[in-house]
Design a protein around this nucleic acid. Structure first.
Lengths: 198, 198, 198, 198
DNA sequence: TCATAAGCGAGACGGTACGTCGTGTCTTACG
DNA sequence: CGTAAGACACGACGTACCGTCTCGCTTATGA
């Protein structure tokens, strides 16, 4: 079960200094959560000034979203194991690991994105589109291998795997585990993808 | 295996005055989101004073959680249609309607609950436990009717239906619709519950 | 130098319960100063309820003034030593002792009285008039004994002795002492009263 | 024995912005008294924000004391008429005018200074020391002119003139007038300073 | 002897100011 | 010119106190 990052991860659009600021943001989000994250603290941690931060990201929300997307970009995986089940497990585990580690960030992003259409836009184009493409590519490969039928691929429910796992990460009472991922893949996704179609 | 559809929803633990405050909170949350909700505005809307609010709920987070739970309690449904599919659809649609309407509140609750163990506790005992019991009762009824096997009921994934739908409500880019619910029930949950078991 | 309280001190106009409340007020004023005095604390100290306090004295200001006046009434002296100097020393020392002990109360009374004409009125009739009469009686006795001329008695400066001593009590940097009183009587008041008149 | 009448009043320690804030404070104190003065109103009057006020003066008490001291500094007089009586009248009238105009501030300062040792300290070094020096210089000039004996200068009663006049200003029932000052100087202070010494 | 009312304790309530903190804008001085 | 430092206006937070009020409980008389 070796995830293979052959897929060209597009390069970071950020200068080294900007990457530092985003990393500081991510770290502080992880430590303190969103509400206790202050732009002052981000600047101080990166030994920068608030103006430097605001010059790039005109609001706390944009900063946090940028940090989130950059964090996801860095942690991106492109499993290609030759088996649908293995691909899904790899993907699920990667998502679980990252979302659990950065659950505070995910919650913050949900809040901020819902408040600002521009952020929604950015989220869509800089993150969701890629993720959807990734999942569809995994499924199409499985179709190619004859594991599932093409008609089983749903546009409505393409985010089933990440959606449920992120829900679980974001609910602080029951963070997902590897057992969760396995049960979800074996008992939900595979049955759904291989169900008899009308 | 007693039907519970009409089971007495436990009574509100709040005095009329408190209910007013929670209703005002819920309404303002819906209108403005969590960050733009001010305790002053809650008090003003309910023609109360800030002190009156803080006497009950010592922080904005606790107020919002209480309002959320009370809102869920009032909107609670206990479907008992005699068919698993219909029960799940009814449940899913109720969850979707409520979560879509109150998505800002749900996001806020996720953030607040993750910050305070006491809120986590309250969330668990005053909300999640009931919801889990409700879903298990729906499934057990289906077992009683022979629609599914008892072994298909999973403790790990009991929140599959609400989890995914709430994820969709909370991601502002793709709110769930009735079509989403139907596809999810027919193509994911039912296949999962009726899959061949080892 | 024996101060003699032959002068009929008029009886307290307060019931025992009211006297308790005023005593509690006075004590708390002494301990905490005016700003940290709360009506709640007064009620609690006297094991009464706020309503009981407010029924008698409709505001914190009136309560404090009443407590002040009652305190002065209880500590009143009427020196009659047969010597002007001794009378003045006795009076000055009594004033000094009381005003030093209750300086916080005096400050509070000044503030409150200046804010409310009704309190000003009460202060005038229930306190200042008596005090003025007392001092004039001491001076008139001295006139009778031939110690000073009647013309030396000034209506403009009748409060010279209490005025300066209270000023000193109320300025927290230099509370008056017995030495202050003696110097003031010997070097200021007596020279003033026995100065050559035009 | 150098005349100090025209001595350079030490410059204001405040920036223009700070002076504005203190002026606003002083004006509002005069209009509303201390209790009805709000820091919000001070900030609003000076088109500043509360934080700006609190950055300089960490409490309402410190703000008010600073405003008082600055007000006194601006109104300071250094009489040098060549005659003790005239000097004292000038001083007394200046004190009376200022203390009458700002009686609410004086009362507030007494209360606040008595509550906080740091304020007491500030009051002592930034105000009382100067005032004592001023009076002693007036008296020493009179000694130089042979009007009074050096031994008549008392360290215990140096604040006789301001003390009584401020007492009168602060008691709202009998504010001092020019007649008061004249009577006090002629009938009390001069007799005291020119009394036969042992 | 009992009830009916007056006074009381307890304490919730609306209101208002406090002092704190974070955001996003701006200016100043350095490199 | 970009940056670090940090002041500033704004506005919400959570706390405290005032003066009003509504509850029951007691107690003290009048039927």
């Amino acid at each position: 079960m070796t995830p293979i990052a052959d897929c060209a991860t597009e390069p970071s659009p950020w200068s080294p200094r900007e990457a530092e600021l985003l990393a500081a943001t991510l770290q502080l989000l992880q430590e303190n959560g969103y509400e206790r994250l202050t732009v002052d603290a981000v600047a101080a941690t990166a030994k920068a000034s608030k103006a430097t931060v605001y010059r790039r990201w005109p609001s706390k929300g944009e900063l946090v979203l940028a940090a989130f997307i950059e964090g996801c970009r860095q942690a991106a995986v492109h499993p290609n194991t030759g088996s649908l089940r293995e691909d899904l497990l790899a993907l699920g585990e990667a998502i679980t690991a990252h979302a659990t580690k950065h659950s505070a960030t995910v919650r913050a992003v949900m809040v901020e994105v819902s408040r600002d259409p521009a952020l929604r836009e950015a989220m869509q184009h800089q993150f969701l589109d890629q993720r959807k493409a990734l999942i569809e590519s995994v499924l199409r490969q499985a179709v190619g291998r004859g594991e599932i039928q093409a008609a089983a691929i749903s546009d409505e429910l393409w985010d089933l795997l990440p959606g449920y796992l992120i829900f679980r990460s974001v609910m602080p009472t029951r963070p997902p585990t590897m057992k969760t991922v396995q049960a979800f893949v074996d008992n939900v996704i595979i049955p759904s993808l291989t169900r008899p179609l009308a």
